[in-house]
Amino acid sequence: MLSQEEKKRYSRQIQLAELKNEGQQKLQDAKVLVVGAGGLGCPVLQYLAAAGVGTIGIVDFDLVEETNLHRQVLYATADVGKSKAEIASKRILEQNPLVKVEIFNTKLDNSNALKIISNYQIVLDCSDNFETRYAINDACVYLNKPFVYAGIHKFEGQLSVFNLDNESPTYRCVFPEKGEDEIIINCSITGVIGTLPGILGTMQANEVIKIITGIGEVCSGKLLLFNALNNSFSEVRVKRNQEAIEIFNKQL
């Protein structure tokens, strides 16, 4: 049951006919894991906490760096050198003390993914490396959990909800294998416009709210592509590919 305080706090979304008290209750009962508290993770955490998602897990082992500050808007200059997971937790609890935050000060990989993810119902992939992305995918497929993916590159972003159900595609259905000799391309090498993760991260949070409350159309079965330079959105249709999904099992 929502308290009077909660009903008032969330009144502007509760008054939406699509949400009502029932939708807010679903948000409150939800347990959502955010992997990565960087460019994508900051807006994701802010909007999930503000919306009243009841339990929010944060996985990040990084420390705040000065070069993060132009896009990782939860962190202040004085936070440089401090734990991202801890500062992010502190900030979102200041914004909304009614939610519960759980911190994992570690890198999510194949060794710990199942253990960490199993306690949550939805995962957000806000990570910045392929090892973690594939670990999230494979653990979510194994545990039958949806995950909301976004990836960014310079001025471009990708977004999709993977493994929403037994018929929807997974990350491996788009990109089957992580190459051994993968050229590591991340923000520290290529650069990134600060607003881009803000836009994509906010869209990830929006997908999570839709999945939890069951409203609207979820971005599943397709990869949404956004270009911040010309404001173009395009979509690529993707089918579930059992052969690609089983690549992971073959590697075991």
Binding site: G151, H153, E156, G157, C173, I185, T190, L223
Partner: peptide
């Protein structure tokens, strides 16, 4: 997204899509 070899026509639109790690 296509898997395997497919026949192409002049009015097809192709996209080359890499994964984004960032």
């Amino acid at each position: 997204k296509v898997d395997g070899n497919v026949v192409l026509n002049d009015n097809d639109e192709i996209a080359l899509l890499p994964p984004y790690s960032g």
